[in-house]
Structures are given as structure tokens and as C-alpha cells.
């Protein structure tokens, strides 16, 4: 419909674009501007150049520690979640009895919110650790593995249903042909299932990468960053910088810009890499 009159075009796009501009676009641009200023509210901002960016890295080690923690967490979670989800998807596409029930159960945790999940796992993990006289705030590595377990519990079922859809979309002729040619289970997996499930792999790595890097709610409720921000990820570190102490709003906003650029870079690289591995039909 190339010649839609302007008033109709406005009718269809204006409500969304107006809300988008107010809720996202203006705050986004204002956020970039404020990262170069010192402020406590938007109106009292004073230009300070790149000093917020320098302070984000030099005032203390919180931001760098959080970055290291986040990258490690993302690597471990993305690999574990995808391996487990794909393995479960293979088991659940073998037409066993009860497949639907299992699928329902494994997917369920994904619907529960991050804050609630954090407190559920805090109870379980502390219940185990109390036998050793400690709790999850004892060491940052407890918080790390706690978050890994939580994230797997939440996301494996979600990724699994996407892999199942991918596996079910493989043409049966291909499987039949491979069987006739005498392919064994391993050859079938390496030669047919894995290459043809690559589009699902792209989606799943995208979702796990971006969810792992942006994780906030689960981090806040499971450990709150304890001990002493040792288990704080980037999103939580930025939140604490903003709202934890006055005079640090500009530093918080500068950290947020760095965080955004970092997430954008990782996501775009990941998409380019896994798209290049998809089989082109």
C-alpha cells in the first residue's frame, strides 16, 4: 500500500511511536548526555566531560569485578543451558510415553518471576549450606554457582521447547534416507540433527546470552550482591551505584552506557557468528 494518506499513517503509527519516544527514545538520549555530567536530578546537570567514565573504572574495583563476574557467569550458563536443553530435546523427541507431561514440567519455572525464583533458591541453597555452618553470602563463588543453578532451572525448559520445535522441523525424508544408508545414531546426530537445528541454536544462544548479561532480579533476590558486592553482576552494580550513594549518579549513568555498548557488541557478534553456521537451503 505505497500511497497511504498521511492521516491514516499517523493513525496507525502515532500511539506506538509516541509512547516509544517518551518511554525509551528521550530517556535513552538523555541518558547518554547525562553520562557526561554531574547530576542528582536531570535539571541540575553540569558538564564534566569523560570524568564519569574514568571514575567508573578507577574509584573502586566494583565495576570491573562485576564485569568479570558477569562474563564468567554468561559463559558457564550459556554453555550449560544449551547443552542440557538440547540433550533433553533429543530425549523428548523419541516418542516416549509421558513426553508432554515432562515438557510441561520442565518449561514451568520459566514463567515464574526472577524475584520469586531468587528467594525459592535461597531457601534451598541455604538449607544445604547450613549443614556446613555457612550460607550463600559466605563467598562470592557460592553466589556464582547458586545463580548458575537458578538460571539453568529457569531457562533449560524454555530453550528445550525451542530445540524440540527445531528437531521436529527436520524433514522425515532426510532421517529415513540416512537410516537406509545405514547411519548410526551418532552419525545421525552429527550429520543431520545438529546442522539442521542451527537456526534454533542461533535463537537459543541469543536468548541465553542476552538474558545472562542483563540478569538483575535473580541477582538482587538470591544474594543481593553479597558478600560486599562480590556476587554483584553488572546490572546490579549499576543499580547500586545509582541509588546506593548520592553524588554517584553520573558514574552510574556512565557505567550504564558502557554496559549497553558491551551488551550490544556481544549480541551482534554472537548473532553474526551463529548465523554463519546455519545451513542454507
Amino acid at each position: 500500500m505505497p500511497g497511504m494518506p498521511k492521516r491514516f499513517y499517523a493513525f496507525f503509527t502515532l500511539p506506538t511511536m509516541l509512547a516509544f519516544t517518551l518511554a525509551f527514545l528521550i530517556p535513552f538520549l538523555l541518558g547518554i548526555y547525562l553520562s557526561f555530567t554531574e547530576f542528582t536530578t536531570v535539571t541540575d546537570s553540569r558538564w564534566v566531560g569523560i570524568s564519569n567514565y574514568v571514575r567508573a573504572f578507577t574509584d573502586d574495583r566494583n565495576f570491573l569485578n562485576a564485569a568479570v563476574f558477569t562474563v564468567k557467569f554468561a559463559l558457564v550458563s550459556v554453555v550449560l543451558i544449551n547443552v542440557l536443553a538440547f540433550s533433553l530435546a533429543l530425549l523428548l523427541t523419541r516418542k516416549l510415553r509421558g513426553t508432554n507431561l515432562f515438557r510441561t514440567v520442565f518449561f514451568m519455572p520459566n514463567l515464574i518471576g526472577g524475584i520469586v525464583l531468587g528467594y525459592v533458591w535461597q531457601l534451598i541453597i541455604n538449607g544445604v549450606l547450613i549443614n556446613f555452618g555457612v550460607d550463600i553470602t559466605f563467598s562470592a563463588s557460592y553466589g556464582f554457582w547458586g545463580l548458575v543453578v537458578l538460571m539453568n532451572w529457569q531457562m533449560v525448559g524454555y530453550m528445550m521447547v525451542i530445540y524440540i520445535a527445531g528437531l521436529q522441523a527436520i524433514p522425515t525424508e532426510l532421517i529415513e534416507a540416512a537410516k537406509i544408508d545405514g547411519a548410526n545414531a551418532r552419525q545421525m546426530l552429527a550429520g543431520i540433527k545438529i546442522p539442521l537445528v542451527m537456526p534454533a541454536f542461533t535463537i537459543c544462544t541469543f536468548l541465553t546470552v542476552s538474558n545472562s548479561f542483563k540478569l538483575f532480579d535473580q541477582n538482587l533476590s538470591l544474594t543481593g550482591g553479597a558478600p560486599a558486592r562480590g556476587s554483584a553482576m553488572l546490572a546490579l552494580d549499576i543499580f547500586s551505584t545509582f541509588y546506593g550513594r548520592t553524588g554517584y549518579e553520573g558514574v552510574g549513568q556512565a557505567k550504564a552506557v558502557v554496559f549497553f555498548l558491551f551488551v550490544a557488541l556481544v549480541v551482534l557478534l554472537q548473532l553474526r557468528y551463529s548465523r554463519s553456521r546455519e545451513v542454507v537451503n
Binding site: 535513552f28 538523555l30 542476552s210 538483575f216 553488572l234 546490572a235 550504564a256 549497553f260 551488551v263 549480541v267
Partner: peptide, 28 residues
């Protein structure tokens, strides 16, 4: 051009972490 500008603005907004806009958005 307007349509593709809208489309790309909207799609790329998905990558942006909430922390980037949380302060300015709540002031807004």
C-alpha cells in the same frame, strides 16, 4: 524511509539494557 527508520529504532531498542534508561525514564 520513515517506516524503515521506525522499524530499526524499535528493533534495536530490544538490545538496550533497562539500566541504561532506568533513571531518566523514571524522571520522565
Amino acid at each position: 524511509r520513515t517506516s524503515s527508520l521506525f522499524y530499526y529504532l524499535l528493533v534495536y531498542s530490544m538490545i538496550v539494557p533497562f539500566q541504561m534508561v532506568m533513571f531518566t525514564m523514571s524522571k520522565m
